[in-house]
Write a protein that binds this DNA or RNA. Structure first.
Length: 318
RNA sequence: CGCGGGAUAGAGCAGUUGGCAGCUCGCCAGGCCCAUAACCUGGAGGUCGUCGGUUCGAGUCCGACUCCCGCAA
């Protein structure tokens, strides 16, 4: 064990795909102790209208810095290539693929993952959404050593942020993403310099969140207003929450639980006006709809919507 | 060439078989009331996305283009 800080350049392979991984990759690129030798990201997929091929944010950033980009379908065929790169460290942020054991064993400072929840809570891919949907008071990021199963490895460090009744997915995503960019380098430094004690996860307290499907955003008006509001905050802007009126799709962008004082005789899912707000009766309580989006239209405030659709008052959403 | 919807007043929308450009909200001026996200009267605000075609006449029919959006990924 040496007390002298190791100033040797750390060769890094970075693996990541979406916007969430960008601050972390930027931090690595900007720091002179780390040398990003290669970037792994998911293959370009047809996205958007017209099904045009589009590159991941991580790929675009890597190319801007002339870092070699690899996009294999499976990492199993890449073991040889990564061994050739001979990284001291592999950093994984939202890559979207499982790393085979042989790769885990390659770098001497291991494979380190930044996960968007306070593990052992919310292992899995919907880790950003789950705390909001469940109404948690806090969430955060866990920087951990990857082992063979999903998000179960020992934790190097955790960083918390607070949530309140207005926190939405966009806030959690942006805040945690930015936070990961700030804390990644100090944590890696401590790890490499042997200053960290790793903490094993308590499997009894663990939970797993499945990958979100579009259908998860369908609003069930039978549920409590507060539950629906959490769902809306936890799923927007992506994958979004929606309902139907007259067989037309309406996305609910933002809402707010209405005061308890309203207690009129409406059916569940019925739309009515209350103090100028577009309001929906829920299984318990009422929900003010603040912003929505109709098929083919842009996001608009509910008051704008009412201007041209006053006939929806009294209709039932389903 | 993945499927589909749309562009009309500041905002949201309607506009039938081509025939004077409309509605709700907002805005401006005035009025009313103890009072209101209330009501009354008056007013401003449009090259109907762009270009071309058909027609005596096009928001409306035909063609091309630009932009926006839902599905799907």
């Amino acid at each position: 064990m040496s007390k002298v800080t190791n100033n040797k350049i750390i060769n890094v392979v970075f693996m990541g795909t979406p916007e969430f991984a960008i601050p972390g990759l930027k931090a690595l690129i900007a720091n002179s102790r780390y040398n990003v030798k290669a970037v792994y990201t998911k293959v370009d997929k047809p996205r958007g209208r017209g099904k045009k091929l589009s590159a991941s944010p991580v790929k675009i950033l890597a190319q801007e810095h002339n870092i070699p980009v690899y996009q294999p379908n499976s990492l199993k065929t890449e073991i040889h290539n990564i061994a050739k790169i001979n990284p001291d460290l592999i950093v994984v942020i939202a890559y979207g693929k499982i790393l085979p054991r042989e790769i885990l064993e390659l770098p001497r400072y291991a494979c380190i993952n930044v996960h968007g929840s306070l593990l052992p809570l919310y292992r899995g891919s919907a880790c950003l959404n789950a705390p909001i949907i469940n109404g948690d008071k806090k969430t955060g990021i866990s920087i951990m050593k990857i082992n063979e199963s999903m998000d179960t490895g020992p934790i190097l460090k955790q960083f918390e942020i607070e949530l309140n009744s207005n926190s939405n997915l966009e806030y959690v995503h942006n805040t945690l993403s930015k936070l990961s960019g700030q804390v990644l380098i100090p944590t890696l430094n401590d790890w490499i310099d042997g200053k960290l004690e790793i903490m094993y996860q308590d499997n009894d307290k663990a939970s797993y969140v499945k990958m979100l499907k579009k259908e998860d955003g369908k609003i069930d008006w039978q549920k409590k207003a507060i539950t629906i509001d959490r769902l809306i905050r936890g799923l927007n802007p992506w994958p979004g929450t929606f309902t139907h009126i007259n067989n037309k799709l309406i996305k609910i962008i933002t809402a707010q639980v209405a005061p308890n004082s309203i207690n009129k005789n409406h059916k569940v899912g019925e739309v009515f006006l209350e103090s100028g707000h577009l309001t929906v009766k829920c299984g318990q309580g009422n929900l003010f709809i603040l912003k929505l989006q109709i098929e083919g239209g842009k996001i608009m405030s509910s008051s704008d919507f009412i201007s041209g659709h006053s006939d929806i008052i009294g209709q039932i959403l389903k």
